[in-house]
Every structure is written in structure tokens, then in C-alpha cells.
């Protein structure tokens, strides 16, 4: 299961991450080494142990639906890279 340049391209696609051509080789080498090491786990007999996603028993926490942090529109919009007419700007997503 070696990770080569093609694998990196595929995972980068899944991660919505552009990777420079010049970096592909390096990432392939790094991940090949790292995942190669991680694979020691697959040799481990974990029997019928249940996966542990979380250390705490997770349950839904409910609270009253009271608005907080209101009237922060300007502060929120100020963080946007591009805005117009109090809206977030993105390139056109529908063909004209």
C-alpha cells in the first residue's frame, strides 16, 4: 500500500487541497514512511475490542434557545476576504 505521487494527488483532491507539483514527491515520501510505520497496528490482534471514539460517554446537552452574541454582523463580515452589499462574495457558481 505504498503512497506514490498518484495517491497524494487523489487524497489532495479529496481534501480540497492544492499541492504544488514540486511538493508532490516530498509528500509521497513522507506519507509512505509515516503510513508504513502506522501499519504496525494492522498486525495487532485487537480481538473484539470496541472502537473508542471518545473517552466520555457522549450525550446531547440541551439548553434554552436564547440568542447570544447578537448584532455582530459587522465584526463577522470584517473577517471575510471579499464582501459586497453586506454579502460574502464568491466567483460565479452558475453558468450565465
Amino acid at each position: 500500500m505504498a503512497t506514490d505521487v498518484e495517491t497524494i494527488k487523489k487524497i489532495a483532491q479529496l481534501s480540497a487541497l492544492s499541492i504544488n507539483e514540486s511538493e508532490l514527491e516530498g509528500f509521497a515520501k513522507d506519507l509512505d514512511m509515516i503510513i508504513g510505520y502506522m501499519e504496525q497496528l494492522s498486525k495487532l490482534d485487537t480481538g473484539d475490542v470496541k472502537p473508542m471514539e471518545h473517552v466520555l460517554p457522549l450525550h446531547n446537552v440541551l439548553r434554552e434557545d436564547v440568542p447570544t452574541h447578537v448584532n455582530r454582523r459587522e465584526e463577522l463580515m470584517n473577517n471575510a476576504p471579499e464582501t459586497a452589499n453586506e454579502c460574502f462574495m464568491v466567483p460565479s457558481v452558475v453558468d450565465a
Binding site: 497524494i8 487524497i11 481534501s15 509528500f27 502506522m38 485487537t46 475490542v49 472502537p51
Partner: peptide
């Protein structure tokens, strides 16, 4: 980027059980 790639790989179809789920079992 390296960690995002590693994580995406571990969660991707075909490796989810072998890597991510296995890691969760080892965690327990």
C-alpha cells in the same frame, strides 16, 4: 498539509477499517 493528507487517507474508503478503526480499538 501533511496531517490533513494523512487523516484523509486514514478515513478514505478502503483504509477506514484498517487504519482509523484499528487506531480507535488500540485507543481503548
Amino acid at each position: 498539509k501533511r496531517r490533513i493528507l494523512l487523516g484523509t487517507y486514514a478515513l478514505s474508503s478502503g483504509y477506514h477499517d484498517e487504519l482509523y478503526n484499528k487506531a480507535l480499538k488500540v485507543r481503548r
